[in-house]
Design a protein around this nucleic acid. Sequence first.
DNA 1: TTGAAAGCGCTAACAT
DNA 2: ATGTTAGCGCTTTCAA
Lengths: 331, 331
Amino acid sequence: MAKKPDEIAKALGVSITTVRLVLGGKAEKYRISKATQARIREYVEEHGVKFDLTARSLKLKRTNTFGLIIPRLANPFFAKLSEELEHRCRETGYQLIISCSNSDEETEKELASGLVQRNVDGLFVVSSTSDSQQHLGKTISKPMVFLDRDYGNTDAPIITSSNFEGAKDLAAAIAKHADGEPVYFLIGGSNQPTITERARGYLEVMPQNTEKDWTLQSARNRTQDGEQMMLELWEKLGKAPQNLMVSSLPVLEGALAVLREKLGHIPPQLRLATFDDNKMLSFLPNEIWSVKQNEAEWAEAALEAMTQTMSSEKAHSKTIATRLIHRPKDQ
Amino acid sequence: MAKKPDEIAKALGVSITTVRLVLGGKAEKYRISKATQARIREYVEEHGVKFDLTARSLKLKRTNTFGLIIPRLANPFFAKLSEELEHRCRETGYQLIISCSNSDEETEKELASGLVQRNVDGLFVVSSTSDSQQHLGKTISKPMVFLDRDYGNTDAPIITSSNFEGAKDLAAAIAKHADGEPVYFLIGGSNQPTITERARGYLEVMPQNTEKDWTLQSARNRTQDGEQMMLELWEKLGKAPQNLMVSSLPVLEGALAVLREKLGHIPPQLRLATFDDNKMLSFLPNEIWSVKQNEAEWAEAALEAMTQTMSSEKAHSKTIATRLIHRPKDQ
DNA sequence: TTGAAAGCGCTAACAT
DNA sequence: ATGTTAGCGCTTTCAA
């Protein structure tokens, strides 16, 4: 069982300070004798040590802890991002504390103030609304880095994916193979900045859209929103579309579920384009393009921005490039 | 900006103790005058308070914090479980700290001792190996609850899914529709107790298997393991199987990727059975059965076991029932 | 009805 | 080359 410093000191007949100096790597600086060092290290080798980080934190006013607030861990993108960020934080000597706001403004505020009371050294936040981002920016006097959602109302650094460029690439890719047929775009969560950027990218490469509106919108981006939008589209067309772009995977799930219900199957000649990549997209026989976000690079950029903010450097916001992935149609 | 208790005291001309008593809900007990209470509350209403939980923890030797060690957040099951557990912990007044071991024994030990140094009040662990579980059981003198993996070498409570029963149901379902054809089983991670239970369930309802071996095994359960096992099976059969059961989703992804490469498509008449459920399974045109685990119930059971262990009650291990889901073949 | 004081385990500056 | 001490902000007990 790990011994506490005072126990070690007593057992070896030296002072607590000596033990701490040696174990804290300050032995050379204070020129503790080699002999004493050896005795202490040997004892520790055998019994182990147990430092109390709580007391250390109280003294140093620093917990070596960061908070991360995301909407949901059930969202694979946020889960992967959290994993990468947790890993990098740990490498840098920080423990990451992950909490889910469930996209609720109130919960988000409560989480933030809870983490502040726990004296985290900094806060990463995927903010659910413009208001809450603004509120946090004003209320929290800790280093902060915002992730994913840029509402344009904070001075803190923001890490985002290149949603606009990604959307342009995605839309261009599917349009090129669309044989002039419309490329409908189901937009879920149209009030989120992430999503409006994607919509903007789509419009940029779809000039045809200005005459006839090929987009459908929904306030949120859950499976049921995808269902609802596809029902609307079906109503309008009286049949399945030939080309479909969606703003996120849950929307795709909903949209395809409706087609399967209407037709008994997902039409294999339907061309698809979606944000977020997932291995299970290969389950579809369809030709499909997807936009993959780079979570590892995100985590790196986020941590760098945090480090800069903590050393009161001016941290720059950063946009992470996405990658277009193409899966050809089955034979 | 939130004020600290001493600032409030100074501003109102009362002692720090008085402020703390009122804000700590002990006003009645110490009979602080209504007037003073009102003044303090009013001040707080306007300016906010900021308590330092670190100092509180040091004094009370209790951090209101639990640790959770899982292999990976990128695994959707663990992500969902973490989300549910975090939510329930928060409701109970605890902050959950999630860390990923990446299925590495050393990392797992380091994480555990790191969390102990941070004085978590209890530890939830999905242990990667029998050794590490045993090691933690001996080393850590904190309330512990193990999750998912039962290596049978600890006294601590363990929460698992009903893998055996789930596998029986799953195997029986696909066997019933197999027209007497073999139901091959790709087993990834065959040294994990979770997986051996699943294998045991399969064997229980596949007496035919005793003559001819319909199972293939791999040490781990990643996509590439699924690929490798399917390659082996293809080698053996010279064609695609008609019925396929797999021990987890990554294995399924790998197996289907191989079939698509061999055939140019995933054969739609192939019957599938898999552990873990996911909405994207509906992307497949195939008839498919899946076993869904109940993460919410897991979280509840885990927290209950933790609460019991902390109040030195004998906590009981618990098995959480799974649910069989059937998706019919496309028309 | 309110205030003062000790002590949790640590760090850092200062003594020996 | 080693030891002593003040104080971080909180809770708890005792004093006024």
